[in-house]
Design a binder for these strands. Structure first.
Length: 105
DNA sequence: ATGGTGACAAAGA
DNA sequence: ATCTTTGCCACCA
């Protein structure tokens, strides 16, 4: 495959494949890329992900089911609303139900 | 080339 | 069960 210049591009490529109503974790993506220890880098890629690319970065969360900082998407509870809109369920603690919506590339 | 940084992950108390 | 600390990797200046 076309060796992407940076791991970022690869991350975005996978993030774009996450089906609607599902979520994935940074570690899962990092593993799919062949760098299981690059979970942090994946998160960084999401942060640097251009919104105009239409990347569903709100579907990418950490393995604990916790969402990214509220102000990351422009407002508190925005990411959660987006996921709920897609049919993602949350538990009482406000975490995503991984058992139900965890999707791995 | 080196240093600093970060939307993580796992282990220990 | 929760909170804190450590380790890892890749990008930017």
């Amino acid at each position: 495959m076309r060796p992407t210049d940076t791991l970022f591009e690869r991350v975005w490529s996978i993030a774009a494949k996450v089906p609607r109503g599902k979520v994935t974790t940074y570690g899962a993506i990092a593993r799919a890329l062949g760098s299981p220890g690059a979970a942090r880098t994946v998160g960084w890629a999401m942060r640097a992900a251009p919104v105009r690319s239409g990347l569903p970065c709100h579907r990418v969360i950490n393995v604990t089911g916790e969402l990214s900082p509220e102000d990351t998407f422009g407002g508190p509870g925005v990411q959660r609303s987006l996921l709920e809109s897609e049919g993602v369920t949350f538990d009482v603690q406000g975490r995503v139900d991984m058992k139900r919506h965890l999707w791995i590339p």
